[in-house]
Amino acid sequence: MAERREPFEGTREELILDPWFAALRAEPAEPPLALLSAILADAAVVDDARNAVHEPTAVVAEATTPAPLPAADADAPRRRLSGWKAAVALAACAALGFWIGIDGRVTVEDGTVWTGARAVAADSMPDDPVGAFFDLASAEG
């Protein structure tokens, strides 16, 4: 059964009660100043705590985000080799070693470790290199 609505039932009671309510309404109910100060202090503390929580969170977020590799790290091998010149020399030596390794004309038995061109020259050297040197010197004056 639906509850009976009583839109006007309070009217008679309200007439009776109104002056009573008015008497109580007239009583002040102001909050003391100390209470307001305490409420504002709570607000400040909550605000501070919120800020304190948010700051470390940002640091953690940065730490967990993969950072791009710094440019200095990409250059680290060159720095470890003490500069461009050393790096180029090392690369040239590596290439030379590789070429010697695959070039069948140059062998360890030849006693040379120079280039193929020099090795070819070594093959065509005269049997008496000292005499040939003086021959060349006298020919050139």
């Binding site: 209470l35 100060s37 305490a38 202090a41 709570d42 400040a44 503390v45």
Partner: peptide, 17 residues
Amino acid sequence: APRRCHLTALPGGCILP
């Protein structure tokens, strides 16, 4: 006792700057 803030006792009571 005099009212203090809930969360912490600020120096000098609850008077805010």
